[in-house]
């Protein structure tokens, strides 16, 4: 965090100008104003013990679009993202309040009565650090499929290949599917984790700074992937890198100290934000 923030400050002016050069406004303008809705967050709060890390957030996640969560370090982006698949359930003393409704069914993800396993079967996640399992490349991708009861060899093989192709990794690993996932480079491991997330045909994928541990080339590959995925999957992505938010997202939500300050089309947020705080953040004149 301490190391991260000077770099962030450094990057911000460049980010903003980069956005002006090739921001996503052109394709955006051509799109219909309303896409259907995948998730509706309403009066949502999250607590670590007594500490309220997400404060009364309401937002709309559009289906088959990329929504970016941005904001300064510690503002609660990761925390909010992890509420969408209830990762916080794994830890004691955490509490959700309010609603995150997944549409079209309309059930509230954070309702205790909702079975988290069933819900996680529909929502995949890619973590900040690549976390391949101590298994072969093939078994890493097959893991989620096996959990869903796929056991036929040919079906597994087909779907694993499809997912690896989808994650732009197939050509690099097709001759060593039996090798441990750990043997891959960092960028390849992250694409392996994306393949793992894709293999189960999720309705939504949650990305938490998926490129923060990667070099620019690996980052570009993953951004390209996110680009290809939209239109088929709803994507929610946390990023520190505003160029990245501008490049990959359709909508951007700016958070500050646990609150959602502003959410709008990405082009609007980066060119003409309505809140002063947002403007200060994206131009790097923060605080």
């Amino acid at each position: 965090m301490v190391i991260g923030s000077p770099a962030l400050m450094h990057a911000q002016p460049r980010d903003a100008s980069a956005d002006h050069r090739h921001g996503p406004d052109a394709p955006d303008a051509a799109m219909p104003a309303q896409a259907s809705i995948k998730a509706q967050v309403k009066d949502f709060s999250f607590y670590y013990g007594q500490f309220q890390a997400v404060k009364n957030v309401s937002m709309t996640i559009r289906e088959h679009k990329v929504t970016a969560l941005i904001g300064p370090s510690g503002c609660g982006k990761t925390t909010l993202l992890r509420c969408f698949n209830r990762m916080h359930d794994l830890y004691p003393n955490t509490r959700y309040a309010g609603e995150i409704r997944l549409l079209p069914d309309g059930f509230n993800i954070v309702d205790r009565r909702v079975n988290p396993i069933e819900m996680r079967m529909r929502i995949s996640m890619v973590f900040q650090k690549p976390n391949p399992f101590p298994k072969s490349i093939f078994e890493n991708v097959a893991y989620g499929l096996r959990l869903r009861g796929v056991s036929s060899r040919s079906e597994l093989a087909g779907r694993v290949e499809h997912a690896l192709r989808g994650a732009a990794l197939w050509e690099e690993v097709k001759d060593r599917l039996k090798k441990p996932g750990f043997d891959l480079s960092g960028g390849q491991q992250q694409r392996l984790c994306i393949a793992r997330a894709l293999a189960v045909d999720p309705e939504m994928i949650l990305f938490d700074e998926p490129t923060s541990a990667l070099d620019p080339i690996a980052t570009a590959k993953i951004e390209e992937l996110v680009h290809e995925l939209k239109g088929r999957v709803t994507i929610l992505i946390v990023t520190h890198n505003m160029q990245q938010a501008a490049r990959v997202s359709d909508e951007t939500a700016f958070m500050y100290l646990g609150e959602l300050i502003e959410m709008d089309r990405t082009s609007k947020i980066f060119q003409n934000p309505s809140k002063q705080l947002t403007e200060q953040y994206i131009t790097g004149h923060f605080g």
Binding site: R120, S124, M125, K129, N131, F133
Partner: peptide, 26 residues
């Protein structure tokens, strides 16, 4: 690392599966 367990839970695994198929081999 917890991160490995999270990876498994996030794909919809339960505790036993996570313990036997991810934590144990690791």
């Amino acid at each position: 690392p917890m991160l490995l367990r999270e990876g498994s839970y996030a794909l919809g695994a339960g505790r036993l599966t996570t313990a036997l198929r991810v934590v144990f081999p690791a």
